[in-house]
Amino acid sequence: MIRLRYFARLREQLGTGSEEMAPAASVAEVLERLRARGGVWAEAFDGEQTVLVAVNQETVGVDAPLADGDEVAFFPPVTGG
């Protein structure tokens, strides 16, 4: 399994902060599955709003490969400091 995490505006929009998912080959494949859920999921990941991705807490691109046990996080552009 892989663990998905959502933060900030995205977490509120999706109504959840984390979930488990069957292993996927890449971040792109996870995004395909999430969009296929329709509704707020399709809206959140349709490319209209900027969504950043981290795998095992390192920022990556959507083509990044995944392995069983990975943690994949999705979040909006950061606004700390």
Binding site: T50, A73, P76, P77, T79
Partner: peptide
Amino acid sequence: IIDYLKTRAPFWKKERTESGERWVEAR
């Protein structure tokens, strides 16, 4: 360090104003 922190470290601000709550947009 502060320039990189602002664009790379995963923090998000949510403000409460007189008209409700809103997430701060990246600048």
